[in-house]
Amino acid sequence: MLATAVAGILGYAVQVLAPALLVDRGTYIAFSVLWSAVYLCGSAMSGVQQEISRAVHPALERIVDSPLRSFTWGAGIVAVLIGLLTGAGLALSVVPGDLMALSGAVGIALVGYLITTVLTGVLYGLALWRQVAALVILDATLRAAALTLAFAFQMPIEVLALVISFPFVLAPAAVWLIVRSRITGGHILDVSFMELVGNILRTVAAAACMGAMISGLPLLIGLTKGSSAEAVLGAVILAITLTRAPIVVPVIALQSFLISAIFRGRPHPAPRIVVRLLLLALVGIVVLAGLASLIGPWIIQLVSAGRFEVSPGMMAIIVLSGGLVAIMCISGPALIAARRHTANLIGWAVAAALTMLCLLFPLEILLKVSIAIVVPAIAGISVHLVSLLRRTGTA
C-alpha cells in the first residue's frame, strides 16, 4: 500500500508538472498522447501480471525449468514489434517527432514493461511484498525525477519518449539482482504452459480494453477530436488525467494484490455483500463528484496557469466516471481469482467497444466525451456483476 501510494503520488506529480512546465501547448498535447499510448500498451500487459500473480505458488522443491522463461522470451519479441509499430504510427499521425526515435523509445518501453509485469507477478504470487514495493517505487522514482528535469529544460518529444521508457528496463534489472536467488527455481505454476498462455491471452485482452478506457482515453479522444479547438481538447485531457488518477490508479496498482492476497482461494461472495459494496462505492463516488464540481475548475486553472478551463458539471462527470471504472478494476480481479477469465474479458470488451463507439458520435466534444466515459462503464459493471453473482460456472 505504501509503495502504491508513493508511485501514485509521483505519477500524479508528473501529470501536474507537465502542463505547468511545458510552455508549448502542442508539446504538452504530444507528451500526453505519447504517455497515453505507452500506458495503454502497458495496461494491456498488466493482464500478464494478473494471471502470473494468480498462477504462481511457492515450490516445495527446486524447479529446474519454468514455463515462464519460454513465455517471457516469446512475449518479449511480440512486445518489441508492437512497440516499434506503435511508435511509428504515433510519429506519422498525432505525435510530431522523429520516426526512428519514437519507434525505438516505445519498443524499449514495452519490452521493459513486459519484464516488469512478469517479475512483479512472480513476486506477488510468492508474497514477497517488500520486493514488490521496491520495484514499484524505484520505477516511479526514476521516471518522475528524469521527466521533471526534462520538463524544466524544455526537452523535445523524442527525449521525453526516452525518459518515459528507460525506467521500465532499469528498475526490474536492479531488483532482479537482489531477488534472483530467491525466485529462480523457487516457484511453481498451477496450470500448464498452454493453459497459462490461454489465460494470459484473455487477461491481456481484458486489460487492453481496460487500458483503452483509462490510460488510452486521451489518445482515443485525440484521434476522434475532429475539428475541436486545441484549448478545449487540452482542457478535457488535463481534467481527465488529473481527476481520475487519484481514484483509478491506486485500484489498478492493487489488482494483483487483490488477486493473490484477497480473492484467490476464497469462496464465491454472497450476493448481498456484492450489492452492499456496490452501493457504498456509488455513495462515495457521488460525494467525490460533488467535491470535484466545487474545487476542480479552480485546480485546472491553477496547474495550467490559466491556459485551460473546465466547467463544474464536466468535472463532476469525469470523477463519477473514474469511480465507475474503479469498481470494474475490483470486480475484474475477483473474476480472475475465480478463474472466470472469459466473463472478465466480456465485461471489459463491452465497455471498451461502447467507449470507442460513443467517441465516434458526431456530437460536440464535451457531450460525446461525457457519454463515452459514463455509459460504457455502467454496462461493463453490469456484465461483471451478473457473473459474480452466479454461484456456478468457471467461464
Rank of each mutant, 00 (worst) to 15 (best):
V16C: 12
A20R: 14
A30R: 01
A37T: 12
A44C: 07
G47W: 04
G47Q: 00
Q49D: 10
Q49V: 03
Q50Y: 05
S53K: 08
H57W: 06
L60D: 14
E61A: 14
R62M: 10
V64Q: 08
P67G: 14
L68W: 05
L68F: 10
S70R: 15
W73S: 09
G76F: 11
G76M: 10
V78T: 12
A88F: 07
L102Y: 05
G107S: 15
T117L: 02
V118N: 06
V122I: 15
L135Y: 02
L135R: 03
D139W: 00
T141K: 07
F151V: 09
Q154L: 13
Q154P: 01
E158M: 04
L160Y: 11
A161P: 05
F168L: 15
L170F: 13
P172C: 07
W176I: 03
I188C: 00
E195H: 05
G198S: 12
A206G: 12
G222Q: 10
K225H: 15
A239E: 02
I252L: 13
Q255D: 00
L258T: 00
A261C: 01
L279Q: 09
L280P: 00
I285Y: 07
L288W: 07
L288R: 02
L291K: 00
S311H: 05
I317M: 11
G322C: 10
I327R: 00
I336W: 01
T342G: 11
L345N: 02
L345V: 02
G347P: 00
A351S: 14
L360Y: 11
L360F: 14
I365Q: 01
V374I: 13
V374M: 06
P376D: 06
G380T: 07
G380C: 04
S382V: 08
R390V: 00
A395I: 12
